[in-house]
């Protein structure tokens, strides 16, 4: 589905992705002639952003851009303080920063709005909990690992500002605790058996 979604261009049928003219979509109940799908549509008209950027100014006695010396500075980076021209300025999370700081923030993960990949700690925690419970001899390792991953997942959800998801967290914590307990019990039984044999 993802590949189809990525390949889709422009508004059209939500099943076969055939482009449909806006006049047809505006009728609210739309029938796709290609795949015979009937759907409800709400057309919106976003603001058109002018394609051509504002012309860059030549420096006339004032500060020039730290990266493009022939362009006048329009602002100073709010992170590193370097002067930057209109080409270098990036507006993100209410800040005006330079391209270098944007790249750094993106690679460090400190710019949340620029983050596109992440690790799903909550899923990892849940799976480790199940693994530790099913293969309980490994529970002593998998259980604490599950609890750690779940804690990271909670931190991640808090950072992302997610609402809800408490049930999944509770289930993952319970599984982690049960896996740990099962692992400890297994070690206890094995240790008792070995001690009994030695005596």
């Amino acid at each position: 589905m993802s590949a189809k979604l990525d390949a889709a261009h422009g508004p059209g049928c939500p099943r076969c992705w055939t482009p449909i003219p806006e006049v047809v979509l505006a009728s609210r109940r739309v029938y796709c002639g290609e795949c015979a799908l009937e759907f409800t549509a709400a057309v919106l008209r976003p603001v058109e952003v002018p394609a051509a950027p504002a012309p860059l100014e030549q420096p006339s006695g004032g500060a020039s851009c730290a990266r493009h010396g022939r362009n006048a500075a329009v602002a100073a980076c709010e992170r590193c303080g370097a002067f930057m021209c209109g080409l270098c300025r990036v507006e993100v999370e209410g800040q005006s920063i330079c391209a270098a700081c944007f790249d750094r923030g993106r690679s460090e993960g400190s710019l949340q709005a620029a983050q596109t990949t992440f690790r799903s700690w909550r899923t990892l925690g849940l799976h480790l909990g199940i693994f530790g419970l099913v293969l309980y001899p490994f529970g002593i390792l998998a259980g604490p690992a599950s609890l750690y991953a779940t804690a990271r997942g909670v931190g991640q959800a808090r950072k992302d500002g997610d609402e809800g998801g408490a049930l999944g967290t509770v289930v993952a914590v319970l599984l982690g605790l049960l896996a740990t307990a099962a692992g400890v019990f297994f070690v206890f039984v094995i240790t008792s058996a070995v001690r009994g044999k030695v005596r």
Partner: peptide, 25 residues
């Protein structure tokens, strides 16, 4: 849109001020 394959997720954004059409079927 968070797409999670295994334990790695990819985040895509559809900006609200760029939406052209919303459909229900």
């Amino acid at each position: 849109v968070d797409e999670i394959e295994g334990y790695t997720g990819t985040r895509r954004r559809v900006l609200l001020d760029e939406i052209l059409l919303v459909t229900l079927h």
